[in-house]
Simulated assay, not measured.
Amino acid sequence: MRTSNPSLNSKTFERAAPGAGAMTIEGTVNKVGILLVLMLIPASYMFSKVLNAWDPSAALATAGMSAIGALIFAIITIFKKTWAPVTAPIYAVLEGLFLGAISGVFNQAYPGIAMQAIALTMGTLLTLLLAYRTGLIRATENFKLGVVAATGAIAMLYLVNIVMGFFGTRIPFIHESGMVGILFSLFVVVIAALNLVLDFDFIESGAEMGAPKYMEWYAAFGLMVTLVWLYLEILRLLAKLQSRD
């Protein structure tokens, strides 16, 4: 198995110690649903606060702190998989606070953009899940290798951009609303979406291998990481498109 999702890799299930129960696809889907609810509740709260004329700077500050907290619990979850039943829900709540605040700020600038991004994210998830289950898209080794390579290149580009930010500059064009910026965002959205296929394959393989029950929470957490990335990239793409109007 190969996946570019840092929380789901080919050694995850091999290192897992046998548990009292076995991981199932149905159980993982249920855990994904729970994490989505835990994410949506604080996200809705933060989003409504921003819409009710909350200071955007305060919203961004809250988003930043929540993002740091989510990152910390994500790292803990990755290195302590047995803690996933506790750390994954905490990650979902913190990520929800971040997404709600940042979505509200975007929505203030471009009314309706948050709902559009949510609809496109869920639509992409369901479409790719259907394509995967029906065999229209297969996670072959070449497919996995291509997605992993593209994801790694994007990660390196973002890392370089962050480092450049410390010196008061950034990579030109890719963050702008010109054609290059839009095409770049579209490419990133496609790669983020294709990571879902790798995650589906990983979850299915884990269930077939009879991984311990707590891995349902861990696998659900991994899928949520991809969904959050996909949503944010769709949000950025829509913002670029609307800024051209």
Rank of each mutant, 00 (worst) to 15 (best):
G135V: 07
E208V: 15
V163E: 10
L129M: 13
H175L: 15
S185I: 10
A131V: 10
A153C: 08
L186S: 11
R133A: 11
Y158N: 15
L129Q: 14
I171P: 08
L130P: 03
G181R: 11
G123I: 07
R170K: 07
H175K: 13
T151C: 08
R138C: 11
D199S: 01
Y218K: 02
N195I: 04
I154K: 06
I203T: 06
M209A: 13
R138W: 09
L194H: 03
S185F: 04
A131C: 12
T124W: 06
F200I: 02
G168N: 12
K213T: 14
A192W: 08
N161H: 03
V189D: 05
L125H: 00
L157N: 02
V180Q: 02
V148C: 13
G206P: 08
A211H: 00
M179K: 09
L128D: 15
A139K: 13
T140Q: 12
L194T: 07
N195Q: 08
Y214T: 03
I174A: 03
G210N: 03
M156I: 13
P212R: 00
I171M: 02
E204L: 05
M164R: 11
A153M: 03
L136D: 11
V147M: 05
E216P: 00
G146S: 00
L183C: 04
G152Y: 01
R133W: 01
E176P: 07
I162A: 10
F200L: 03
V163T: 09
F202H: 05
F184V: 04
V180T: 12
E176T: 04
L159N: 04
E176C: 04
P172M: 09
L157R: 03
T134S: 15
M164I: 10
I171H: 01
T169P: 07
M164S: 10
S177T: 11
M164Q: 04
Y132A: 06
L145T: 13
P172D: 06
A139T: 10
T134R: 13
S177N: 14
P172C: 14
A192R: 08
K144N: 13
M179V: 12
K144P: 13
F221C: 05
E141L: 05
V190N: 10
F202L: 02
M164T: 10
L183W: 02
I162F: 14
Y158A: 15
V147N: 05
Y218S: 09
I182P: 06
G135T: 05
N195T: 04
W217E: 11
M209W: 02
T140M: 08
E141A: 11
Y218W: 14
R133S: 12
G152C: 03
A193I: 13
M209V: 00
T151W: 08
F167W: 11
V188R: 01
V148A: 15
T134I: 07
R133Q: 09
Y218D: 14
L194G: 10
V190W: 07
L145Q: 13
F143D: 03
T124D: 09
L183M: 11
S205T: 14
L125E: 01
A211V: 03
A219N: 04
K213H: 04
